[in-house]
Amino acid sequence: MRKKLLLLLSLGWIFNYAHRMAIPPLIPIIKTELGINNAQAGLLMTSLLLPYALIQVPAGYLGDKLGRKKLVVISILGYSLASALIIFAKEYWELLSIRALYGIFAGLYYAPATALISDIYKGRKGSALGVFMVGPPIGSGIAPLIVVPIALALEWKYAFLVLSAMSAIIGITLLLSIKGELHEVEHAKLRIPKHVIRLSIMNFISMLAFFGMLTFLPDFFVNRGRSLEEASLYFSILSIVGIAGSLVGGTIYDRLKKKSLILSLGFNAFLSFLLAKTAMPIIMPILGLFFYSVGPIVTAYTAEQATNENKGSVMGFVNMMGFFGATLGPYLLGVLIDTLGYGEAFYFIPLMYMVALIIIGTQKKRISHT
């Protein structure tokens, strides 16, 4: 039962990311069709990430209070339906509104899912969360493989109907195959310890860099003379190799704890600097190993900063701060690209990783909770 739950939760997380990351490979098409600039294109990510961020703490607390599995099922079915509504969007503002609705339902997922996995796997939480956190690289990797062929053969909006049908099946399977709640919290508390603040600020900055790069990476390569198909391939390579990065990151965290986070942020700063300077595709698979290792490491590290009673709230708070950064990242990088061009704007990414490294590196050691 434990393995089945981890599999289904991981699949739900994969499609959570596939829906949100379906936009970046389609940006060249959407910009042409709607007549929007890079900053407006960045808002297509911001519009979902802001409500996603705002609902994180309530999602964590409600998961602890009402049932984590129950809230996860509501999230999957809700974000599937919301994303399918894109087929009806005709104006730019309509697309923004639907993406915001998607962000609300998608935001109900992370905190209850990660808190549930952490409690069930306990001492092996890093390895288990490493499996769960293959969601971002796999979801981001399969997104262009699904949506670009559909966009070129039919129309880009139909791609979201396909994704919605696939993710809805996962939600229904989770509802029917896992009976009841596997872990219940007797006295849920909405309490955020002070020592979590520095971790949250670090997550804000690293996610700002992460989502800024992901949003404009295909267009970055198109700007450097690559075709849309080739740019999408590089995007997928980053994410596919990131599967190994996620698995290894979680496993290494169980051994190195906080040191694994410092190493991961350092390599991301160095490799993203090389990408901005050279735009060499060979960097993508190497970067993928470290780019996606941050997620499971931060998640496992966060879980150890909380108690059973406030774990959902703490997971939600740290993720909320991260997605405030994710909300700002695409728009800010879009503005920098419009102002400075891709060459100079992409140097912003390694700078942010270095700042995040300094913040978490100077944090005093805290007693872990299990």
Rank of each mutant, 00 (worst) to 15 (best):
F88Y: 14
K90D: 15
K90V: 06
K90W: 12
E91C: 02
Y92C: 06
W93Q: 09
E94H: 14
S97V: 14
I98T: 10
A100E: 04
A100Q: 11
L101R: 08
I104W: 09
I104D: 01
I104T: 03
I104L: 14
F105V: 10
A106Q: 12
A106P: 01
Y109C: 12
Y109E: 02
Y109T: 07
Y109L: 12
A113M: 02
T114L: 05
T114F: 00
T114E: 00
A115L: 04
L116F: 03
L116H: 03
I120A: 06
Y121S: 10
Y121R: 07
K122I: 00
G123H: 12
G123W: 03
A128M: 04
L129T: 08
L129G: 08
L129I: 12
F132A: 05
F132S: 00
M133V: 05
V134E: 00
G135I: 06
P136Y: 08
P137G: 11
P137W: 11
G139S: 13
S140M: 14
A143H: 07
P144N: 06
L145T: 04
I146S: 02
P149R: 10
P149E: 01
I150S: 02
I150R: 02
I150W: 05
A151S: 13
L152M: 13
L152E: 15
L152N: 13
A153P: 01
L154N: 05
L154W: 15
E155L: 04
E155S: 11
W156R: 00
W156Y: 13
K157C: 07
A159K: 06
F160G: 09
F160R: 06
V162R: 03
V162Q: 07
S164Q: 12
M166S: 14
S167A: 15
I169R: 06
G171I: 09
G171S: 10
L176N: 12
I178R: 04
K179I: 05
G180H: 11
G180S: 11
E181K: 10
L182H: 08
H183D: 11
E184T: 14
